[in-house]
């Protein structure tokens, strides 16, 4: 199934790589305020700002019945064609598991792991764009 991804086949070595593999895929995102959205991922950035298409949003509310003291859970659904989601509301993103069949973690040597230094040789394609142009 990984063949359907148009991005160069890359290993997932940091969490945002995982998000990149979800471009054009239908994803589930859990947001603050008991909201969930499902939709096709069209864009993201390092803040987890997102643009989603064909979106369905679910808002969950819990109401307490004052008499019976029983909690009842209500959900409301909304559909939206195209939605920008601000990244600071994102808690969790779920990835359709068909995306990769191979197990993610290669056992890395301890010395190769430095959280703040990105791993080498991650991409097969040359980097075409230079940030200094921005």
């Amino acid at each position: 199934m990984a063949d359907t991804v148009t991005a160069p086949i890359t290993s997932v070595e940091e969490p945002l790589d995982l998000v990149r593999l979800c471009l054009d895929e239908h994803i589930y995102v859990k947001l603050r305020g008991d909201r969930e959205v499902r939709g096709r991922l069209h864009a993201f950035d390092q803040h987890l700002n997102l643009v989603l298409g064909d979106v369905e949003e679910t808002i969950t509310t819990v109401e307490l019945d004052p008499e019976t003291k029983e909690e009842s859970v209500h959900t409301t659904n909304r559909k939206m064609d195209m939605l920008f989601v601000r990244g600071d509301g994102v808690i969790l993103g779920l990835i359709p598991s068909i995306l990769y069949t191979a197990p993610l973690p290669k056992k890395l040597d301890n010395h190769a792991i430095n959280l703040f230094r990105p791993p080498r040789e991650r991409y097969e394609t040359p980097i075409l764009f230079d940030l200094s142009k921005d």
Binding site: H42, A43, F44, Q46, I127, L128, F129
Partner: peptide
């Protein structure tokens, strides 16, 4: 948009 997002994520790395 998807192409731009892909490029930007690779570029930031």
């Amino acid at each position: 948009l998807q192409d731009a997002a892909r490029r930007e994520s690779q570029q930031s790395t």
